[in-house]
Amino acid sequence: MTLIFGVFLLILLVIVALAIVRSEDLFAAVMLSGIFSLLMAVNFFLLDAADVALTEAAVGAGVATVLFLGALALTGKEEARHTVSPGGRWLALGVSFATASLLFYASLENPHIGDGSAPVHQHVAPWYLANTLPLIDIPNVVTAVLGSFRGFDTLGEVFVVFTAGIGVMSILGVRHSLVELSGAELDARQRSLRHHLIPRIVGRGMVPLIMLFALYVQFHGEYSPGGGFQAGAIAAAAIILYSLLEGDDRGRELLPEWLLRLMVAGGALLYGGVGLACVLLGGNFLDYSVLATVPSAGQHLGLLLIELGVGITVTGVLISVFHAFARRASR
């Protein structure tokens, strides 16, 4: 039964992807890509990846859609009718077809979906599953692998997010258009939903609940699906919702720019700092066992701190990126 459901959802995924590529209205394409992400999240959930599904739903359907809409407001929402020349189009089709055929051919050599004896499941995964409880003593293996076993990898990912945030801020200019603030403020006021009573009241009621859920996901991530990446995306979605409802200027009053910049850098620093603290206490970099007298308690403390660092950085970067686009738009 689950199998049929999965096949149905996957086919729907392909249909939505085709609709996205075919649609000439970019606005519709962005909305469809939100649906695409949501379908993808359901597929992930069916494939036993609860953590990933949570992230995809929050990031793909929530934050990505808002960012694309913010960019569309600046670039125009109609795709020009002209595509590449007919020759180029045939070339693209040919390349796509050849790639697809190769991938189809290669897929036949792959182990079956769900085959427990596939090579992927033989190497490190059994070790992670067997050692999470003895070494780290938390139920969620994904969080354990993410934060502790592969903590160095995750540190790198956090710095990629950090760098991308810095990149967006320096391209779009944090202090851009400060001179025209009065005009921009007026514009932002018209742009927001402030005069739409129903969405505003309901949305304002939702924001604290979403924030609460983000905190739950952040601090309960060791026991249930969740963690810093998910919580950061959800918290950012809450603040972005607030900014959409009340206007970008109000959103910036709530979390001023210096605080956002502090969050972007501070979260990554906290992560790295925990790693350094481990070294200073005589352990290896990011080996949290030395943080407390009992190794598993040290692991708990380390995971809590680095997940907090991840959450803070992700929240800060996503909100800063949103503000960068929104401020550009209200110029």
């Binding site: 739409h196 129903i198 969405p199 309901v202 949305g203 009621g205 939702m206």
Partner: peptide, 13 residues
């Protein structure tokens, strides 16, 4: 129950 009517209102409006 809370969000669906709001979304419908926003869409219609």
């Amino acid at each position: 129950a809370v969000t669906a009517p709001t979304a419908a209102y926003a869409l219609g409006n």
